[in-house]
């Protein structure tokens, strides 16, 4: 598990540049995640890695390709101080967990962390610290547990 840290206002053009928007396939998109601003990301990211960022993560374009690229890259969840609203909805709808928590100053790349989603607790084993967050509303947790909106709608039938 690796932590990838980003700053404030990471826009969806950074997450997946427009050059690659000719497919909706998560794996294909993942090969170009952060291609312009952090080219090593797509090569080095592993299943279970976590992104930690500041304010307004995912601002800009409504392209669902952005959370799809992260999901395809194996990102387990994104922790940010706040999220842009379309990115937030897109992520939950496709089953990418998000945590709204102001911990960017307290988690370093290289830290070993553990997340208990239902309890709203992030444990930083490296720093021997715990951070609380407000768990997602129950409705959104159900969406995530179903694997996103489509599986949720299918189950409801």
């Amino acid at each position: 598990m690796r932590i990838w840290k980003f700053g404030d206002n990471v826009d969806t053009d950074q997450i997946i540049p427009a050059d690659y928007l000719t497919t909706g396939d998560a794996k294909k998109l993942a090969a170009h995640a952060f291609a312009k601003v952090r080219p090593e990301f797509a090569k080095e990211v592993k299943q279970g890695d976590i992104i930690v960022a500041g304010e307004n993560f995912g601002c800009g374009s409504s392209r669902e390709h952005a959370p799809r690229a992260l999901l395809g890259a194996g990102v387990r969840c994104v922790i940010a101080k706040s999220f842009a609203r379309i990115f937030f909805r897109n992520s939950i709808n496709i089953g990418l967990p998000l945590i709204e928590a102001d911990v960017s100053d307290r988690i370093e790349e290289g830290d070993e962390i553990e997340i208990r989603f239902e309890d709203g607790v992030i444990t930083n084993h490296t720093k021997r610290a715990e951070y609380q967050f407000t768990p997602l509303p129950e409705f959104m947790q159900r969406l995530l547990q179903s694997g996103g909106l489509i599986n949720y709608i299918k189950r409801m039938k």
Partner: peptide, 11 residues
Amino acid sequence: STGVGSTEAAA
């Protein structure tokens, strides 16, 4: 009016 993702558009 507001922007949504492809999955929501499909729903």
